[in-house]
Amino acid sequence: MAENVTPRVRVPSSASAGETVTIKTLISHQMESGQRKDDAGNTIPRSIINRFVAAFNGETVIDVTMEPAISTNPYFEFQAKIPESGTMSFTWYDDDGSVYEESKEITVG
């Protein structure tokens, strides 16, 4: 498992019904491309996060397939439509099978 993987998300805690909100995510991850060699000349095996999904109350906002050309500490900024109060969930899928999750409540008032 990749070490010290920490997800960070920025989500507003409240919104008006139907409002479009901006969301930012950043996760600490080396995103080892599989193109690099170590000091001994051996190829360092690929080890990346290959998919990122954001959903609100189970409905998809964005679903991204990621390749090794995504930079270290993957960053995404996108927008979501918030129809009602609920939970914004974020999921990152690692090559090694690990799944990293984060969620935030958004209150519509």
């Binding site: 479009t20 959903a55 964005i62 679903d63 397939t65 390749e67 930079s71």
Partner: peptide, 18 residues
């Protein structure tokens, strides 16, 4: 590099990455 799929609750079809 990547493929972005926008779902029903995408607020816009704008996205940024590095």
């Amino acid at each position: 590099v990547a493929t972005f799929h926008f779902g029903p609750l995408a607020g816009s079809h704008v996205a940024s990455t590095r």
